[in-house]
Design a protein around this nucleic acid. Structure first.
Lengths: 249, 249
DNA sequence: GAAATTCCCGCACAAAAACGCACAATCACG
DNA sequence: CGTGATTGTGCGTTTTTGTGCGGGAATTTC
């Protein structure tokens, strides 16, 4: 088994169960605990997991208190949110994924807006619920504790049978060659279904995620209609995407 | 169980109940009180909790008001919750409605419990998600903003197609003549479906709602298997229900 | 003020991590 | 090719960390 392969497996396990024990991982894939520890170290340095004595935890675990970094990218995300909101008009049916950028958008929705929002993200739903005129449809199924969204065949089937006007995706990684990619298998399934069920696909992505990629492919750039970042639309780093036929905001 | 994990659990409990006892925590997670004390120390040093003799307090608790009334009914609900939990065992499939009594139950679930909880209540789902070993299934559909649960035909269809071991209903009104009743049409639909889909039906009700009724009928007493209140099982006011064939706890 | 808790301290012990080293596989490159 | 450097992995040994336990000090409680 290759190192990268093994690390991908570990990452998947962490995202799935929110915690892993070095001992059980070692038994799982038949390598020494030492190797596992080294893998966890690397993943921790890349910020993919949180290393603790005895194993590692998913990032979502202690995400509750991450004030410094949070506030920093907050204003960027607000900028993105405002651009995204300009695409919404009354009466629309809107599919959204989860993620902090989507949350920021949900918080910034103008109170007089009347639309229907559909999502499987618990956090996003909570935000939508606070708005007076928004109809909220919750996609049901098993809840993935790591990503705090509903995942599974029921959720996907439900999404497939709707036809939304527009779909907002919080994007973890976007890249000219790989399109949009992610690192959680179940989330990827959801996002794919959302893309297929929407007339327009909008990617929200902070600039530092532009030109990066993750292990699992979601879709090619050709499926994306609009890309939103906190940068001005004519920023040179976004030019290639515009040339690929994507409307850049 | 990892140290960080345990501390996260403790922190959650503190924020939820505003206080924790080292002794009960120790019993909950099966570690020595010494370990709990050390955890509380660390959390206190990080400013997450306030350490006091015998346990710890939530930070919000120290300064803010002390509404005796609230704490009072809190303890009633805790009593109900504990009785309800005694009915749950590992591996069960459990349907629950929403309501503050159900929430209190969700908060008090022992951390080592492994079971599957199914609900359409956003607040309840949030609580279930915090527990390490609980699988959570979310019933999806339109969200009713008044009751904060998913309502509608999809949700009902989904409930109908499952067969749960047990169903816990937060009860708004129960009465010998009218059975259980409620005042929200959509919630009633949901509860009816839950009752039909469960092998056992348990009503959680604080005593002041006993012998009251609301406009909309949910079901007759005959459908109810167990009634839980904060009163002792042999309290005279509960006698008629026992005589009606309901097991009273 | 006496009984019962709870806390603190030191110790023991197991589990995990860190470190240094050996060794195999792979890569780099003239 | 071949040879030397790099990388990835496993294995002892030593350190560190996490946890429980006993006994005595401190505290709550009545």
């Amino acid at each position: 088994m290759l190192k990268k392969e093994r690390q991908a497996y570990i990452l998947h396990q962490v995202n799935l169960h929110n915690k892993v024990l070095s001992s059980s991982l070692s038994a799982d894939i038949n390598v020494s605990e030492d190797t596992i520890r080294r893998d966890l170290m690397e993943l921790a340095e890349e910020g993919k997991v949180i290393k603790v004595h005895g194993g590692a935890l998913s990032h979502s675990f202690s995400q509750v208190h991450f004030p410094a970094n949070e506030v920093y990218s907050q204003s960027q995300k607000k900028k993105i949110a405002n651009k995204a909101i300009s695409l919404i008009s009354n009466g629309m049916f809107i599919l959204t994924s989860g993620g902090t950028t989507i949350l920021e958008m949900a918080r910034s929705l103008p109170p007089q807006l009347k639309a229907t929002f559909i999502s499987g993200s618990i956090a996003a739903i909570l935000e939508y619920m606070h708005h007076p005129n928004i109809e909220v449809i919750l996609i049901g199924d098993r809840i993935s504790k790591s990503s705090k969204i509903t995942v599974g065949p029921e959720a996907i089937a439900k999404i497939r049978q709707m036809k939304a006007d527009i779909c907002f995706l919080g994007t973890n990684a976007i890249d000219l060659n790989h399109g949009i990619t992610d690192n959680d298998w179940e989330v990827v399934q959801l996002k794919r279904a959302m893309i297929e069920s929407s007339q327009k696909v909008v990617c929200l992505s902070i600039a530092e995620k532009i030109n990066t990629f993750q292990p699992i492919h979601i879709c090619d750039l050709s499926k994306i209609d609009i890309l939103i970042t906190e940068l001005p639309a004519d920023d040179p780093s976004l030019l290639p995407y515009a040339e690929a036929g994507i409307r850049v905001l």
